[in-house]
Design a protein around this nucleic acid. Structure first.
Lengths: 342, 342
DNA sequence: TTGTAAGCGTTATCAT
DNA sequence: ATGATAACGCTTACAA
């Protein structure tokens, strides 16, 4: 019966030391491959560690090093494709760099956002990668992090703070989408916007408006309606638009899900897409290829957004105070599908 | 300038003790609301703690208590609706019980599954809630956990181990789905199955076959084709089915995503759904309501699955060796939509 | 009611 | 090249 089968407990550096009749410091040094340790000792330690299936106790390490190598990630929702995909990117980079992630969702609730930060803080995460809720208008909880010198990277849903950020070119994407609708001959173009105090939404709205202006299109102010990104609110917006005095012949939606909702309403009212009304979304979710008709959209490099955010986080950790916040803007691509192929 | 603004470091029990001129043990006791501590002292401690914004250091607590109050969660993929929703349920219960979760995805890769367990183990998670990959055929890594007395709860994708499990009534759901197709008059019913060594898939297949037998339907063996759950493989299966000598007039798919793929292929080949071919899926993803036609499906209480798994985990943690593994089978519901409304 | 001291698993600073 | 020892922040006997 070996040591490990005898007791349930994980093997520690002490066990190895005792078994080898040496001190824990020597074992520690050997394990970490430090110089100034006898090759024979080193080998013996490694062999025994292997044999006993020794796993360093990260909890103890965290306590002494005063850092947990854990990144707190705050997102609005797990079930939104964008965020689940972004997490993939974050985790890939994090694990490669020896970091773990701990993810909390806010459910778009400001209070929950604050609570999540607190929860993660008491777990002593080394810092945060976050996307703010659509409700958040007060950034004190984030400002406090900055003041306390706790690394913070914002992605996608950012706000006006002196921290590294990763976003896509929301303005440019929206501009491209709108121009595309103009190019195919639409004249009464509507926009299903998102929550107004998110930069992301304002930028997409600006891109829409500027594209319209630049191409001398008449802007119908009441053809801009507001959604909360969800399918349901997309449906609501679709219904709203159909009741306007000016009937739109195209819609640019702030995201694919809102577009799905609107599209569904249009079809159920007997409208032909794109003949009667063309639609463009934003994000390029996997299903956008399969909707009927398939959805023209702006694709975002979501995985890369996550990766970039994590890379910036780790750089920030490594460089400490020297690190100068930078905003990385990734580019988007117009994917033309049947919802705009007249 | 107060203590906390002076130094970046988090306030500790020592700081409070020093400031109050008492010992750390008293502070600790006061903070935890233990009896036998002078009400005045207790109040002073609480007030100062509040004022200094003291947050207990969970890392230190974990070290002394030899448990981290963290659950390792292993899922095939973040971006699959089912798992992201299940995580919501898990996290809700976990947070309420003072637990944190640390989620890793396997990407359906067996080696990654093993690696994830290792990673989480070195973080000293208290146990695991897991769904195995579709590749996993060897369960040694899980058996080792059990032997070491580390709590494990399996959900959805389970295997034959003596641990608590949460599943839906896969057999019954499949039976209901198939019977529905029979009821509406289909006679050549195909099944898009999933990876054969997942119980979940075998049970759905059995449910399908039994429903057919019980209703004296002719079973066309080569109308059972295998997918890997993805949209793409659903498309592949759809194409396959159309090439069979016997043309199916209905399909029961192992999951909604595979159904989406098949549906897309059928439509692109000019088939009318459900007139030419009816379709039923499994899971009831949010989008299944919006597909064209909307998808009849078996809805699963995903959030509840997650919650139940977490509840069982916590019960297991609390009861320790006394806990007797139990398998909770949640029921499903047939949601009839247009893909089967002839 | 409160304080002292040991311990959780590790690293780091001195000695030796 | 190696060993003691203190420290990380907290809990917990045991003393007082």
């Amino acid at each position: 019966m070996t040591l490990q089968t005898m007791k349930n407990e994980q093997v520690t550096i002490k066990d190895i030391a005792k078994l080898l009749g040496i001190s824990t410091s020597t074992v520690s040094r050997a394990l970490r491959g430090m110089p100034d340790v006898n090759p024979d000792t080193k080998q013996a330690v490694h062999e025994l560690a292997e044999q006993l299936n020794y796993q360093p106790n990260l909890v103890a390490l965290s306590l002494v090093k005063k850092r947990t190598k854990t990144i707190g990630v705050i997102i609005p929702s797990f079930t939104t494709y964008f965020y689940s995909k972004a997490i993939c990117g974050i985790q890939e980079v994090a694990l490669d760099a020896g970091y773990h992630i701990m993810v909390c969702q806010t459910n778009e609730d400001y209070k929950t956002e604050i609570k999540n930060i607190d929860i993660l803080l008491s777990s002593r995460v080394d810092g945060f990668i976050a996307s703010i809720t659509r409700e958040t208008e007060n950034y004190d909880h984030y400002t406090q992090l900055i003041q306390r010198g706790i690394p913070l990277v914002l992605f996608n849903r950012i706000c006006d703070l002196e921290v590294p950020k990763v976003v896509v070119d929301d303005y440019g994407g929206a501009y491209k989408a709108t121009k595309h609708l103009i190019d195919i001959g639409c004249t009464k173009i509507a926009h299903i916007a998102g929550p107004d105090h998110l930069y992301l939404c304002r930028n997409r709205l600006r891109g829409f408006l500027d594209a319209m202006k630049d191409h001398k299109m008449k802007i119908y102010e009441n053809l801009v309606v507001y959604s909360d990104f969800s399918i349901e609110s997309g449906m609501q917006c679709g219904r709203e638009l159909l009741q306007k005095s000016v009937k739109p012949d195209a819609v640019f939606a702030v995201c694919d899900t809102a577009a799905y909702g609107a599209m569904h309403v249009f079809k159920s009212k007997g409208l032909q897409i794109p003949a009667d009304i063309a639609i463009v979304g934003y994000t390029n979710e996997p299903l956008s290829e399969l909707t009927e008709p398939s959805l023209t959209t702006i694709s975002q490099p979501i995985f890369k957004i996550g990766k970039t955010a994590a890379e910036m986080f780790i750089q920030m950790m490594n460089e400490g105070k020297e690190y100068i916040p930078e905003t990385r803007i990734l580019s988007t691509e117009l994917i033309i599908r049947n919802s705009t192929r007249k």
